[in-house]
Amino acid sequence: MHLIVRASIAAAVFALASGSALAASNLQVVDSHSVSLFTASGGAFGPGRAISPTLWQVKYDSNTFLAFCLDPNVAVSNSANNYSSSAFAASDSVKRLYEGYYASSIANVSTSVDSAAAFQLALWELNNDNANLLTGGLRFRNLSNAVVMQANSMLGVATGNGAIQNLYNYTSLTSVNPASQTLLSVSPVPEAQTWAMLVAGLGLLGFMARRRNAGAA
């Protein structure tokens, strides 16, 4: 849990500088949590090819945070890579996925990686395929696997009509050289009350500083 809290805070700091593309920076994989699955029916993964949906902990531009993969057909490089960051235009379905399951998926990864793996499968489907785990390019023979079944439930919510609260800012990390997975990280959007309290606090500090200066004069 300590890892998740630290990574979330770092991601929030990192996202403040990621509204537009930045110069390439070094990215390193610090840790990973994954589970192996396979697609018996082929598709983009190939017949029976093993895949490992993974939650990554990465260090980028001096910040350490958690990230999921956006491209299921590219392996992550184990060596340091040059990556560029930019704001990611998340679809409504991706937003529903994150708002409904992201926090719980990373919170449970210390005891069970299945929820994070299911989240990754759902993200791949929404970003790269047809949001159906039984058809299309990223498909499974059936939903009997517990992780696949959980991912299917997540997709049902993500593609539904639930209200979108815009709880997160989304940042993509794209490999410059050599080729590696494109990663997606998020950071919480500060609530209006939080911004108001921050502005009020800064104003109060400024007022007190002026009073001290006036008293000294």
Rank of each mutant, 00 (worst) to 15 (best):
P53G: 12
F68G: 09
I51Q: 06
G48M: 04
A50E: 13
Y83E: 00
W56A: 09
L70W: 03
A80H: 03
V74H: 12
N81Y: 04
V58E: 10
A67V: 00
N78S: 10
R49A: 15
Y83T: 07
F68L: 02
A50P: 14
V74C: 02
V58D: 01
T54Y: 10
R49Q: 15
S62A: 02
Y60Q: 05
S79N: 11
L66N: 06
A80L: 11
A75T: 06
K59C: 15
A75R: 05
D71R: 02
I51L: 04
S52E: 11
Y60A: 00
Q57M: 12
W56D: 07
T64L: 00
L66E: 11
V76Q: 06
S79T: 15
I51S: 07
T64Q: 06
V58Q: 04
T54C: 12
R49G: 04
S52T: 15
N73H: 05
N73E: 08
A80C: 01
V76M: 12
W56F: 15
W56Q: 10
S79C: 05
D61K: 15
N81L: 08
S52C: 07
N73P: 00
R49M: 05
P72A: 13
F65A: 07
A50K: 06
N78K: 06
Y83L: 10
V58L: 06
K59N: 14
D61F: 14
S77F: 11
D71K: 01
N81P: 00
T54G: 10
T54Q: 12
I51E: 07
S52N: 10
L55C: 14
C69T: 00
Q57Y: 12
S52D: 06
A75L: 11
Y60D: 00
V76C: 10
A80Y: 05
C69M: 11
F65V: 04
A67F: 07
A75N: 07
